[in-house]
Design a protein around this nucleic acid. Structure first.
Length: 402
RNA sequence: GGGUAGGUACUCAAGCGGCCAACGAGGGCAGACUGUAAAUCUGCUGACUUAUGUCUACGGAGGUUCGAAUCCUUCCCUACCCA
């Protein structure tokens, strides 16, 4: 069993906030003394079933809790997802049915299992308690917090000032999330830094319900592969846990230099010393940024696809992008006809969304067949034998006719 | 309930009777240069059997007009002020 100090050092490493520190120390101390594990809570939004390595930052931290013997409580927000979305950004997000959210929740958990130790994980759905609350219960809950307190949240303040709509139910979101903490009696809740407000509401609400308030731990929000926006599916700048080794490697190679060490630390969960060494070598110029990225990409792939797969991904990468060769595995599509015009091929193979787009791609020189650039939109392609179609830098497809 | 300002393509945002598939910016895509980095430069960015062509589109539905994103009516939506 690790000592208090050791546990604290491990758990606080890489965290942005761990509040209040003294309370957390007390909880840890008690846990060590009584042998009773802490309950670490994480709420999941099951409206989008794919987990990406941005989510993984927090999951990895949870894993550290588990490795120290503590319990993780995953709350699938099936009830909240059913109602809609609070962020205002995507106000047209369709409300999901309970079945859909359950289904998403399941895939979510399957993916989380790549990181978490499921034998030390409790999975619960918040509809279990939220769905059965009466209107009276809701009023009781909402009476425990004030509008001014809610408006403290950055995002609410901004929207309120700039005249954007805020629906009343959005105010209820932080409260219901806070109530989840009451329901599962969490000792500490984790989340991204964007969740800090919500996590803190949890403390107040727990107190109001006569419980010992949870501590909060926030992890950084990992930027997406564009290096600017936070990683998210809707911005398409994400690396999914389910991405193939090849994609994972390639996507990581495309991150800006400024993010290399950050990815090393929060995506690969490299230790503080290793990260510091990389940072200083990069700064000193003794390590080429590309080499550092190759290392980061490789260890990321190793992490999720097994030891050694990072090397394979690198070999493939070198072949395609350094030697300008074609990938060794290319998806194949069979089309009707043995001689088709290039525009038809592009659209029916889903490499272009419309014929206009196909023509544009051709005119701009982004299309080649077997390595030969196609410039004539009316060109006929002989498909007696399979050909390799390349669109842009990254998209390859083997086409054969019948 | 009353008043004011608004609702334009992925986003922001011009246009305010014909020259509008709609300026500009961002984003995205393609190309050049590179380290699948950044920065920079160029082109494209509604669809259709590529046509000085047709269709769809400026919150919805009607209307005026030879002609509407632009004018009128009505409905819906948003913010703010008053109650």
């Amino acid at each position: 069993m690790k000592t208090l100090k050791e546990q604290f050092d491990i758990l606080s490493d890489g965290a942005v906030d761990l509040l209040p520190q003294e309370d957390f120390m007390r909880k840890l101390e008690r846990s060590i003394a009584t042998g009773k594990p802490l309950r670490a809570k994480l709420g999941l939004d099951p409206s989008r079933p794919d987990i990406h390595i941005g989510h993984a930052v927090v999951l990895n931290k949870l894993r550290q809790f588990q490795d120290l013997g503590h319990t993780v409580v995953l709350i699938i927000g099936d009830f909240t997802a059913m109602i809609g979305d609070p962020t205002g950004k995507s106000k047209t997000r369709p409300a999901l049915t309970l079945d859909e959210t359950r289904e998403n929740g399941k895939t979510y958990v399957e993916q989380a299992a790549k990181i978490l130790d499921m034998s030390r994980t409790e999975v619960v759905y918040n509809s279990q308690w939220l769905d059965s609350m009466s209107f009276r219960d809701v009023i009781t809950l909402s009476a425990k917090y004030t509008v001014a307190q809610l408006l403290e949240r950055d995002d609410f303040t901004k929207r309120y000032r700039s005249g954007e709509p805020i629906s009343v139910h959005e105010f209820l979101y932080p409260l219901s999330q806070a109530y989840d903490s009451v329901a599962v009696r969490s000792d500490i809740e984790l989340g991204g830094t964007d969740q800090k407000f919500n996590l803190l509401v949890g403390r107040e609400i727990m107190k109001a319900y006569g419980q010992e308030p949870q501590c909060i731990l926030t992890m950084p929000i990992l930027e997406g592969t564009d290096g600017v926006e936070k990683m998210s599916k809707s911005l398409d700048n994400y690396i999914a846990l389910t991405d193939s080794a090849k994609d994972m490697f390639g996507k990581t190679m495309s991150i800006p230099d400024s993010l290399i060490a950050r990815y090393y630390r929060y995506a690969c969960f490299a230790g503080g010393e290793d990260v510091a060494r990389m940072e200083s070598e990069l700064a000193a110029g003794t390590l080429h940024p590309r080499a550092a990225k190759v290392h980061v990409s490789g260890s990321l792939v190793d992490r999720y696809h097994g030891e050694g797969s990072g090397k394979e991904a690198l070999d493939e990468f070198e072949r395609v992008f350094v030697k300008k060769d074609i990938p060794d595995v290319i998806e194949e599509t069979v089309l009707d006809g043995t001689s088709l015009d290039i525009v038809t091929i592009l659209t029916s193979a889903s490499m272009a969304q419309s014929k206009s787009e196909a023509r544009r791609l051709i005119q701009q020189g982004g299309v080649s067949i077997d390595g030969t650039k196609i410039t004539d939109p009316a060109a006929l392609i002989d498909l007696q034998l399979p050909v390799i179609l390349r669109v842009g830098k990254l998209r390859f497809l083997r086409i054969s006719g019948r």
